[in-house]
Amino acid sequence: MLQYALRRLFGAVPTLFLIVTLAFVLVRLAPGGPFDEEQALAPEVKANLERAYGLDRPLHEQYANYLGALLRGDLGPSMRLRDFTVNELIATGLPVSLALGGMAILLAVGLGVPLGALAALRQNSAVDHAVMGVAVLGIAVPVYVVAPLLALVFGIHLGWLPVGGWSGDARELLLPTIALALPTLAYVARLMRGSVLEVLRLPHVRTARAKGLSPAAVLWRHALPPAFLPVLSYLGPATAAVLTGSLVVETIFGLPGMGRYLVQGALNRDYTLVLGKVIVYATLILSLNLAVDLLYGVLDPRVRQRGRS
């Protein structure tokens, strides 16, 4: 298992390298550069700036320099937020995004899985219809509608929770977490419901009943572990999407996370900032997929053996 994990980890290095290279080329293919503004800079000022950031060098040289710095863990200075290095920007934004995204995923799984399973076990009951109704809403209503509504109701009318901003108070993360978690929660609930219904019809569940096991043993030992597998495979990309897709929520609730830097960076052609963010997200996605694959092996021995051989 450990050997498999390590091998997968090393296997991710070329992928990461490829992503960095592609991102490096793509961001430079976009018209304009970091020092093009509406009010054009004087040519000599611009030339000075470009020289200072090494942008006057041939592209392959810039690329080699960037990779060299990257190997030392240096993502370079931000080209637009000039007082900061990219490392500093990530160090301030990432913890907020991770806390928000992590809580949202925990909420989505912690509520979505039991609700979905419950809906399946009480198929066509009022519980089932209620859960699935809310799930459809959760998937259909976009987050930029849900988030202001939450802020309006709980922040302003009821006054229970802060409307936005970030001072380090955990309560400030509550509404954004709910807004961010809702679509994933809804999808997980639907996925789990369908999966449980399917597994309950499988022959091995009938065998478990035929052996005279208690309903609890049939459910918890025989039905739910295999039913969770499709949810687990969805969780890899879903977690990455929640961690990276929090831009809207971060903006609405005024949270200083990573999301806003990505968009700002891309619009400003802040090459180093964009690349830094791409690397962070790629690493997140790669390691989440690895984690999902490893967990898959825990739940399904057939996968575990394939990994071992």
Binding site: P203, T207, R209, A210, L213, R221, P225, L299, R302
Partner: peptide
């Protein structure tokens, strides 16, 4: 079930739980 009337099903690949060891499935019975 199991104690008075026990059933052996057709396809042991699908009739046994794929994620549990043979030992677990015997012991729980």
């Amino acid at each position: 079930r199991g104690r008075r009337i026990a059933t052996v099903f057709q396809d042991p690949m699908t009739a046994l739980a794929p994620h549990l060891t043979i030992g677990t499935q015997l012991v729980e019975t």
